[in-house]
């Protein structure tokens, strides 16, 4: 700060970096002081909403309390979350190749043997495990988001070699991307006729409806996350040079 004494200095009188440092320290200090006060004043007898959830868990159709909260008690949150994910995908989706097929296999002359073996062995196992997670989400830790994330990870692995290509602007991909939102909204509004209010499941069918919504959500989340990844590797012609660099290595 005091390295050089410049007598004819006529820059700004206030150092911007020091100001931002002081401001950040002040804001964080205030936040920390308030939250530490709140945390320390809590004596550990507060159980939050846990008793309410355990009381009503029989009405939800599932026995895993987190799935019950996500898809029954606070289903609005999940609905809007899927909508937010769809909006982000729409924002970054390339606007070309409407008529190209949804799924395409390309013969690549130079194969990476280790990657190929990894894809062959890991991907089927991941798909089966994702199905298990989706099914087990009703009564154990697991559910649509975890299954979708796992499947998206498997698809990221599949994209590493250029053998498989998915066109996210084809009609099929669009249908699958909006599938969960459409199913969720349709079920939610249809329930107004039967039960009288939005997203109130009838007791006998709640488990089945939750499983249906979760399955559609898994498909949509998988495709959404995979398209988020592919937006970095396969858009515009700059990526052509990137591919060349990768195959040289």
């Amino acid at each position: 700060m005091f390295n050089k004494l410049d007598i004819e200095y006529d820059g700004p009188a206030v150092d911007k970096s020091a100001l931002s440092l002081i401001a950040s320290v002040l804001v964080v200090g205030l936040l920390l002081a308030v939250t530490i006060k709140i945390v320390l004043s809590d004596k550990g007898h507060n159980t939050g909403l846990a008793p309410l959830i355990t009381q009503n868990i029989e009405l939800s159709g599932v026995t895993n309390p987190i799935t019950a909260v996500l898809l029954n008690f606070r289903a609005y949150d999940t609905l809007l979350e899927i909508a937010v994910l769809l909006v982000v995908v729409l924002a970054i989706l390339p606007t070309r190749d409407h008529h190209a097929p949804f799924f395409k296999r390309i013969e690549v002359s130079k194969q990476n043997l280790v990657l190929l073996a990894l894809q062959r062995w890991i991907t089927p196992a991941v798909v089966i495990f994702a199905g298990y997670l989706l099914w087990a989400g009703a009564h154990q830790p697991g559910g649509a988001f975890q299954a979708g994330a796992l499947l998206a990870g498997a698809s990221v692995l599949m994209f590493q070699s250029d053998t498989y290509q998915v066109n996210y602007t084809s009609f099929m991909a669009r249908v699958l991307l909006v599938l969960s939102l459409v199913v969720f909204i349709t079920i939610g509004t249809a329930l107004i006729w039967f039960e009288g209010s939005l997203l109130t499941y009838p007791l006998a069918f709640s488990g089945l409806l939750i499983l249906l919504i979760e399955t559609c959500a898994t498909v949509s989340i998988t495709l959404a996350l995979a398209s988020l990844y592919s937006s970095f590797i396969a858009s515009e012609n700059i990526s052509v040079t990137d591919h060349k660099h990768r195959t040289i290595k």
Partner: peptide
Amino acid sequence: DVAIAEAA
């Protein structure tokens, strides 16, 4: 649940 989601 959160641990599985965070890892993935």
